[in-house]
């Protein structure tokens, strides 16, 4: 992507959050985006992950410009080609872990039987084989985050975006979650995550630092954990 701009308008106040960001992320990279709050790192990730749209600049996803995609096409990309993991998990509270993981497949019109099979596989891969029928409030924060990773994985996207995935977790669960991401990266997924913590960034292979809407540092992490 190059020259990305984003301005928010709140009443008469304008916030020019991204002031021309240019960055290229290749297949199977493992990137941490860091920066103080208000730097624009979340906005950048939301634009990369198709949750938000940029005002100016060019964004190529899979070598194709994304400007001009309509709602249906955007929904399909969010559904099948990228997966999102949030700091607040955003699981549906009344549904079991299994149902939560099935949700993206429901929107992909996958048959019920296959949904069941794949959702189970996804939960097993994050180590929750004995928690499938628990509701989110019966799970610990780390377990909830693993459910949301399973949900992000289940439609087999190439890229996974994670917005401070360990922000609400204790160190131990945070490390567990990071180990899952590291394994996924080894298995070929591109992973882009936001974090505050250097310890978390240490798991990744590349560290991008943003300040006031511009990239101030972009370096390869040679000492990956």
């Amino acid at each position: 992507m190059s020259g990305i701009h984003k301005t928010y308008h709140t009443g008469s106040v304008q916030a020019h959050v991204l002031r021309g960001i240019s960055v290229e992320i290749k297949k199977n990279e493992y990137v941490a985006i860091m920066g103080p709050s208000g730097s624009g790192k979340s906005t950048l990730m939301n634009i990369m992950g198709f949750l938000d749209v940029h005002d100016a600049g060019e964004y190529l996803f899979d070598n194709r410009p994304v400007e001009g995609y309509d709602e249906e096409e955007l929904a399909e990309i969010r559904n099948k080609r990228v997966g999102f993991v949030f700091q607040m998990f955003y699981l549906l509270p009344k549904m079991s872990a299994l149902d939560n993981v099935k949700l993206p497949m429901l929107y992909a019109n996958i048959p019920e039987k296959e949904q069941e099979e794949r959702a189970k596989q996804a939960l097993i891969s994050v180590g929750l084989e004995d928690r499938m029928h628990h509701k989110p409030n019966e799970l610990s924060g780390g377990q909830q985050q693993r459910v949301s990773i399973a949900r992000a994985l289940v439609n087999e996207p190439k890229v996974i975006f994670a917005d401070e995935p360990t922000g609400n977790l204790d160190t131990h669960s945070g490390n567990e979650v990071m180990e899952i991401f590291t394994r996924l990266n080894r298995e070929g997924k591109t992973i882009i995550m936001i974090t505050h913590e250097d310890e978390i960034a240490a798991y990744t292979k590349r560290k991008i630092i943003i300040r006031d809407g511009l990239i101030t540092s972009d370096e390869i992490n040679h000492s990956q954990k």
């Binding site: 709602e71 929904a75 399909e76 969010r78 559904n79 955003y90 949700l103 993206p104 439609n155």
Partner: peptide, 15 residues
Amino acid sequence: REIGLKKAIGATPVQ
């Protein structure tokens, strides 16, 4: 919020 989540994981407006 719930709709936002569903959109984020790929629900179309029609769905």
